[in-house]
Design a protein around this nucleic acid. Structure first.
Lengths: 186, 186
DNA sequence: AGAGCCATGTAAGAGGTTACATGATTAG
DNA sequence: CTAATCATGTAACCTCTTACATGGCTCT
């Protein structure tokens, strides 16, 4: 009843990542997803969605909430990762994204948490994603060569190819900026 | 009861576009969204989703289905656009997409249907989207200049800027390929 | 006294995904 | 005779979005 096969989304991993940094309760987390916060600049999440995500992650056994009462105010649910949740987060963190469209959100999250949690693995993260992108360029280029110039499919492949080259340039820029890159904060 | 404020998605507009070309029934449409079809190369839709989309569009008054019986087999529902549906489709078609991430899917659909329905308006479609992209480049560049080099936000803006430049190059390439571009087909 | 922050949620409505159900016709 | 094609859907489950509900505390 716990493990539906639905894959987790960016919101789920972002919550896992924040709880990995330190156990927190829902209301305390929401500030990180605000427009002013660095994380919120990449991914906006409001309270309703945040509470939904916490419920979901707890239902799936990736986090556990501990109730903390304090006087008359509503009790806080302070969540922390379970071993399963921790394993899942670590697995996700270094895995390159499959589709170039996921660079914008998923990969950026990996970058954010890798910078804060394991800055020494940034090189590795970037290298893996670069390899993935270069492989995709190979494949798309091959497809492109077999398509009639000016056909609709050809136009689409040109777009994908351009996007992939953009990704490669950006990844290389991030890698070279590495030394001066700051650890993101709230 | 018909007009919920939920915006239509790419699937809805693709279905509207196909029905604009000629009235069809559900099963007849699904082939267009197959991997072998040009449209299916950009947007994959299976039968369940297609039937759901047809129901949705009819509920909202954008299309109407006419039942066509033929012997003992299940009756076909042949759908065609209502005036409202036609107006909505035309409005959508020339409107540039707001976010660069929507180029990949929404704009490609506009391009596809514009090529098949109004090839003479392709120039206009491309020009409008180019203007939109150049404006966004201006805005992002301004933001970028105010951010500390190497900060997380700065890295994200660099990514967006690269993606926007890629879009501009691609749009210009499509515009220049214009003369030789083929009208897409099944 | 009122605004805003702290802290939790539920409810309603829509949409996406996958699987399942039904049955005739046609091609090999 | 068996597989694919024609042609329609429903059911179950999950997610997303928006709105609504509750109430104390703190600061001005």
């Amino acid at each position: 009843m716990a493990n539906s096969s639905h894959p987790l989304g960016p919101v789920d991993y972002a919550v896992l990542g924040l709880l990995r940094l330190s156990p927190r309760h829902g209301y305390d987390l929401v500030g990180e997803f605000d427009a002013e916060a660095e994380l919120g600049d990449a991914l906006r999440v409001d309270l309703s969605n945040l509470y939904a995500a916490l419920k979901r992650l707890e239902r799936r056994g990736l986090i556990v909430g501990v109730v903390e009462r304090s006087g008359t105010r509503p009790p806080r649910h302070v969540y922390h990762l379970t071993p399963v949740g921790e394993a899942e987060f670590e697995r996700w963190l270094i895995e390159p994204v499959r589709h170039n469209r996921d660079i914008r959100l998923d990969f950026v999250l990996k970058l954010y948490f890798c910078l804060r949690l394991y800055p020494e693995r940034i090189e590795d993260l970037l290298a893996r994603q670069l390899v993935a992108a270069l492989n995709q360029i190979q494949r798309v280029q091959t497809e492109l060569n077999q398509l009639p110039v000016g056909s609709f499919r050809w136009v689409l492949r040109q777009m994908r190819l351009g996007a992939l080259h953009g990704t490669v340039s950006w990844l290389e820029m991030v890698r070279n900026a590495g030394p001066e890159m700051k650890t993101p904060r709230a």
